[in-house]
Design a protein around this nucleic acid. Structure first.
Lengths: 111, 111
DNA sequence: AATATATTCAACTATTTAGTTGAATGTAAA
DNA sequence: TTTACATTCAACTAAATAGTTGAATATATT
């Protein structure tokens, strides 16, 4: 698990604003393909392809119910990305603190 | 700062094993282009292009001294990536813990 | 001054990617 | 059973990417 290619696919999948927006949408719950596509100005087919990319990267899972395909966010592949960052040590030395602070700030901002 | 395009460039730059290897090499200190290129089986020119990609993503900085170009790792752009992950909350709920554990394990493994 | 070294530039090719449109498939509703 | 809906498949185009080779530029070394 976490072969270089897996990491490639994970990071490449994230390196697109449409796909990140899709994930953000899904991070607040399941949705069907059409629902996911609605906010975007591109064709449904284009979004369908983006979803395929996310699926290949295992960042999205598909549950078929009749003609509807329900999509959900699977965060697991990000572990490998985080691990890579952790191994490239310079980043985390003194930077994990900043990240934790940032998370604390976000928590504090929520009621 | 941290426009979507910046994130795109950061993540796209990381989504290549050659470039990640270059960064890992640089994370243990400055090196010249030729030195960085040596371990790879591709041409010097190809590596030079990878370096350019990393430079555009601000993950690598170049210091010119005569004909030598010294390259160094700049981890700052990863902040935006970490922030994006933090915002896609599901990941961090219950997963930041795992990451911290992982870091602690790595620390423990070092003398 | 001549030569060697470090690096980029330029031109080219092959592959991948993001998008399009139109047709096909399968399921649900009238 | 006809029609509408959800989704993908197929074929295509335009642009980006990763690699190549060969020439150019600039700096060191002899």
């Amino acid at each position: 698990m976490a072969t270089p290619q897996t990491l490639d696919r994970t990071l490449a999948a994230l390196a697109d604003p449409t796909r990140r927006a899709i994930l953000q949408r899904l991070s607040s719950g399941e949705a069907r393909v059409t629902e996911v596509a609605r906010p975007f100005s591109m064709s449904l087919n284009a979004v369908s392809k983006h979803i395929l990319v996310l699926e290949r990267a295992k960042l999205v899972r598909r549950r078929r119910v009749g003609r509807d395909h329900f999509l959900s966010y699977r965060p697991e592949p990000l572990d490998a990305a985080a691990k890579w960052m952790a191994e490239t040590r310079n980043f985390w030395a003194g930077r994990l603190d900043a990240l934790e602070q940032l998370l604390r700030d976000e928590d504090a901002a929520k009621p």
